[in-house]
């Protein structure tokens, strides 16, 4: 890829930081400008609109509808926390899949996103939670294996996952220094981006044809669900945002025959990661408006 890098460098060399830019920064400092005040031109109207939105969201939250699938996901997460100490923050290391069984129960599977993190062995394993009659029971493929001994333990429990998520760079550095880190990952076949886009367009048309509620309503339900489920403060509600235009991450899906939309919300409360910061994927049923699933990804490691 050197050819690409060289050409990109050459083309971008037309854009240069000048003395004028430098002076502008120094002038703004002399004027005592707080860089964070740049958006101070937001009008009173905008602030009022935000306040109104918070009120509307709260009103919807009071009558929020969650499907059994959503409840199964929530109960399964709680079971992992109480049985194995797997916190919401660590969920960024897993892919969660909910299988709805015919008898009304659900099987929730948590697969490690980086099973090959350690040389020669998957230390994270897989968790399976069975949810039936409002009760959830979790099992781990590495049950009974020794989790003591830090990062070289036979199996990684909450202690190692905490390290990996909260001090990602140092943990990997330590693993590399001690010959524990798998340096090379296999990259699977890469589907063409255009193919994926085309597939999305077809699916979107199919889903929208089966929808009974508007996308605006779906967004309102999704936000209300987040507020309700995570007890978000007004400040957090105002900081919650969705990428739009070409950055829009919305996808459409058929979930066991039900048309759904996956809406991505981002929460960033400052320069440094703060509790609850991350990405929330809310799946809304486009026929009933009910929330089918919420996935939280702290974005701290592994799945950003």
């Amino acid at each position: 890829m050197n050819k690409l890098g060289n050409q990109l460098r050459e083309e971008l060399s037309l854009i240069n930081w000048t003395q004028r830019d430098q002076n502008a920064v120094l002038r703004r400092i002399q004027e005592g400008e707080d860089p964070m005040k740049n958006n101070s031109r937001r009008s009173i109207g905008l602030i009022l609109a935000a306040a109104l939105l918070v009120m509307t969201v709260s009103a919807i939250a009071a009558s929020m509808l969650f499907t059994p699938r959503h409840d199964a996901g929530r109960l399964a997460d709680d079971a992992l926390l109480s049985q194995y100490g797997i916190t919401p923050k660590m969920m960024t290391l897993f892919h969660r899949d909910i299988v709805e069984n015919e008898d009304g129960s659900a099987t929730v599977v948590y697969e490690a996103l980086e099973p090959d993190v350690r040389q020669g062995q998957n230390p994270i394993g897989m968790y399976t939670v069975t949810v039936a009659d409002g009760k959830a029971t979790a099992a781990w493929t590495l049950e009974g294996q020794d989790t003591s001994g830090g990062l070289s333990a036979q199996a990684w429990g909450a202690e190692q996952l905490t390290l990996y998520v909260e001090d990602y760079a140092n943990t990997r550095h330590f693993m590399r220094e001690n010959g524990l880190l798998a340096e090379e990952y296999e990259i699977g076949a890469i589907p063409s981006y255009e193919d994926w886009l085309a597939q999305q367009e077809t699916r979107q048309a199919e889903v929208l044809a089966a929808a009974s509620i508007s996308l605006a309503d779906a967004r309102q339900y999704a936000k209300a669900a987040l507020v309700e489920s995570y007890r978000m403060t007004e400040t957090q509600q105002n900081l919650l945002y969705q990428l739009e235009g070409e950055y829009d991450q919305t996808t459409y899906d058929m979930l066991n025959g039900r048309p759904v939309i996956h809406l991505y919300y981002h929460l960033s409360q400052g320069e440094e990661w703060t509790e609850m910061d991350g990405i929330y994927v809310v799946t809304v049923n486009l026929q009933s408006g009910a929330v089918e699933e919420i996935i939280y990804d702290s974005g701290l490691a592994g799945n950003g």
Binding site: M1, D116, V117, Y168, A169, Y185, S192, Y193, N303, G304
Partner: peptide
């Protein structure tokens, strides 16, 4: 990886996908 707050594997995947798209 550290700057993007993701694993090296994720960066590799992003670069590989980007390369495939750019080649096209």
């Amino acid at each position: 990886a550290s700057l993007q707050g993701v694993s090296q594997a994720t960066v590799k995947r992003r670069l590989a996908k980007a390369a495939a798209m750019l080649r096209e």
